[in-house]
Amino acid sequence: MKLVYFAWVRERIGKESETVALPPEVGTVAELLSWLRQRGEGYAAALEQPQVIRVAIDHEHVTHETRLPADGEVALFPPMTGG
């Protein structure tokens, strides 16, 4: 699974992207966020308020209840400020 990060999520985690092998118990977006929070201080800081994190799977917005695909690109980012 490829993970990509933007804005302050990227800054706090300290990388733009990474490829991870998820354990079988991580099945949804919410479970992915909980799992990532355990991976270190940067992740914990980026994801301390998981409810504000917006998520896209393969370039489409999804909710935290969405099931993760077997493979693909999952993006985590703060609320958007376009326009």
Partner: peptide, 20 residues
């Protein structure tokens, strides 16, 4: 404003980075 994946970081007039 709310649904296109863009984020704005401030750069301050006095130099240095501001906030998102």
């Amino acid at each position: 404003k709310s649904c296109a994946p863009f984020w704005k970081k401030e750069h301050l007039a006095g130099g240095g980075e501001g906030d998102w």
